[in-house]
Design a protein around this nucleic acid. Structure first.
Lengths: 187, 187
DNA sequence: CTGAAATTTCAATAATTCTTGAAATTTCGC
DNA sequence: GCGAAATTTCAAGAATTATTGAAATTTCAG
């Protein structure tokens, strides 16, 4: 096996094991990694063959990737077959992942906390009071994180953090590619 | 069941279901939530009884929580039994979770990318070239995220982001508790 | 319209992850 | 030190989650 195939295989495997960390199923993450290693778009037959997946698994994975806006779906004229390619606007991709995860992970916590705190206010025991104050601390913290994410989603955070500063710092560590745009996947 | 017990139960359940999202096992997250609802420290017998867990499960959960610095462990004098209480310095807690997750999730990606890219440079096919440039984009992006996390871990990020601005924003949404410190768990 | 191609669904199964509990080890009060 | 109390370990089993594949549905080229 040449380096290209061996790197592709390792990349697919790494992505598959990392996917669950950011809320993406292993198979969907592997499909995304595999698409990234291809120059051309791929149809489901090719994905099935390339990753040894069943037809249904490919369909599920592609739907998941589409929900995350991680792939673009298209059709060739004169054919009814869909083909897939990895999304290239990484900023949009990151924005979407952050937004979806916020909805799934943080919003329900805030919602519950805001329902529970008043109920504990009714109770008069000292235990309820301490518990309530702890939940209030949590609410403040989660609310703060939430505000940061909101700012990021509105497009403001990166510049407010001082994007240039960070980019410089990250490039200083690796000056070789300093002219390459970060937020677009090289095509 | 009174409001206190019912809120406690819901909180334990919510934490248990959210834990996996931030890399903590369901049981460990439930133990943490349960400890948060208690005024006093708890020993393993009490945790077993309170959450209907086996002795071994409690031991595993507490070790995990200790690794994350989410609980403090102590001993009463004249007894050989450990007792546990939730960590109250939330900033330290967040810092630790971020650091451990960075090590587990981001560092291996960067490491691999930096090994793969030179190998693709050797290959001469156009496919290898495009794949290589995509991996380079990823490396830049992950490297940027990494720099941000590093800054946060060194204590600088929050102030650079403009902590006050964010805190104000988050408090504007919820003015009632504006005098409460955010980064310490109310005891 | 028709019907073959393509996609999606979902119950069954496979794979993975979590939990248990008895045995092994460690810890200290005595 | 001794030995009972406490904790930890880890293989087996339970619970959860992911994957399959055949059947149902949808989609269009002709």
């Amino acid at each position: 096996m040449n380096d290209f195939d061996s790197v592709r295989e390792s990349f697919v495997q790494l992505w598959g094991s990392m996917g669950p960390f950011w809320g993406i199923s292993p198979t969907a993450a592997r499909v995304y990694a595999w698409l990234m290693s291809r120059t051309e778009v791929a149809d489901s037959e090719e994905i099935m063959a390339g990753l040894e997946l069943s037809r249904g698994a490919v369909s599920m994975a592609c739907r998941e990737l589409r929900d995350w806006h991680l792939i673009d779906v298209g059709k060739s004229p004169g054919s009814r077959r869909s083909h897939y390619s990895p999304a290239t606007d990484l900023e949009k991709v990151v924005r979407n992942i952050v937004q979806i995860r916020k909805r799934r992970e943080w919003d329900p916590i805030l919602e519950h906390l805001r329902e529970w705190i008043p109920r504990l206010e009714e109770e008069e025991s000292p235990d309820a009071e301490i518990f309530r104050r702890r939940l209030e601390s949590l609410e403040s913290l989660v609310g703060l994180a939430d505000s940061m994410v909101e700012m990021f989603l509105k497009g403001g955070l990166l510049s407010k953090v001082g994007l240039k500063l960070l980019v410089d710092a990250s490039r200083a560590a690796n000056p070789k590619r300093s002219s390459q745009p970060i937020f677009e996947l090289a095509v």
